[in-house]
């Protein structure tokens, strides 16, 4: 819990400043908009938590996100019902994830290299195929799944919440998910303990892809058209949230709660700066400083603990 507490403290500090300086931040409307805007990051980051827990990394998700949103849009435009479009996007995501996973687990290639290659590949292939054009003239049942704005918003948030909570529970309580921790903590000892390490790694990437597909759909349906350059930098957002949330980048340690807190902290910074009337040109610098601060705080607390223990 130590690590989660560090993020929680950093986030709480930011929120307290906001409570005094810009109480408008806490209006129901703003919180709803913030939640909706970060559903995709949250889903991507929870997929990424598993990948990082298993001791791997996936930097191709931003490119996958764009490809999958376009696929969902194309299918919807072809007249397929929305649930089918959503499932196809998730399925296609699982396939792209399986390509990563196959190369990593099957060929034993380093995941950062594999996903660096697929990141470049998917993004360029998409640019080539679409020429930058958006998917326009979507049927009216595309936006909000045809449910209307309010019901659509509730639906999106419910799906995301159920997925994340269920995943959190599974990670704590189901043996198959504990195998992910074991794999990341030490592949060799996990293997000796009878865990099919390579299969675990493969399925973790498949899961990551499927989550990216769902994230892409849940994000795309908030609009009337699908843009073809979405998701640039999503991988960095997700990785930052996971590591700020306390997961060890070498695997084996981390929780979904920490990731959730990490997403919350990083997602609050941008709007917070607008509320505090700080120039947007300093936003990246502050974001970077907060990432560094959160790891250094953790280091300092660790040093304290070592001294006292």
């Amino acid at each position: 819990m130590r690590r989660e507490a560090s993020v929680a403290i950093a986030w709480a500090a930011l929120l307290i400043v906001l409570a005094f300086a810009a109480p408008g931040f806490f209006s129901a409307g703003n919180l709803r908009d913030l939640l909706l805007a970060n559903v995709s990051t949250l889903l991507a980051a929870s997929g990424m938590t598993l990948v990082i827990l298993a001791g791997e990394i996936d930097i191709s998700i931003g490119s996958m996100f764009a490809v999958l949103a376009v696929i969902a849009g194309l299918i919807a435009r072809a007249g397929a019902p929305m649930p089918l479009a959503a499932l196809t996007a998730a399925g296609a995501g699982a396939l792209l994830g399986a390509a990563n996973g196959g190369l990593v687990a099957g060929m034993r290639m380093p995941s950062i290299v594999v996903t660096l290659a697929t990141m470049i590949l998917w993004r360029n292939a998409l640019n080539w195929a679409t020429g930058g054009a958006w998917i326009e003239n979507l049927p009216s049942n595309f936006q909000w799944f045809g449910l209307g704005q309010t019901a659509g918003e509730v639906f999106i948030l419910t799906v995301a919440a159920v997925l994340v909570v269920a995943l959190g529970w599974v990670l704590k309580n189901i043996a198959a998910a504990r195998a992910v921790y074991a794999t990341g903590a030490g592949a060799e000892s996990a293997r000796l303990a009878g865990i099919p390490v390579r299969r675990v790694v493969f399925w973790v990437f498949v899961w990551m892809g499927a989550m990216t597909g769902l994230a892409a759909v849940l994000d795309a349906v908030r609009f009337r058209e699908v843009q073809s350059n979405a998701g640039v930098g999503l991988e960095l957002k997700a990785i930052a949230a996971v590591v700020v949330g306390g997961a060890s980048i070498t695997g084996g340690r981390g929780t979904l709660l920490g990731t959730g807190l990490g997403v919350g902290l990083l997602a609050s910074i941008g709007p917070a700066l607008t509320f505090l009337h700080i120039s947007p040109s300093w936003e990246k610098a502050i974001q970077g400083a907060i990432i560094l601060a959160s790891v250094v705080i953790d280091f300092a607390r660790g040093a304290e603990a070592r001294k006292n223990g």
Binding site: I57, L236, I239, A240, V243, S248, I249, T250, W282, E283, K284, A285, I286, Q287, G288, A289, I291, L292, V295, V296, F299
Partner: peptide
């Protein structure tokens, strides 16, 4: 501290 996290932070900070 892990290089990936540190330089992810400075990646954002330096350009920022």
């Amino acid at each position: 501290l892990p290089p990936l996290i540190v330089t992810l932070g400075t990646y954002s900070m330096f350009r920022g």
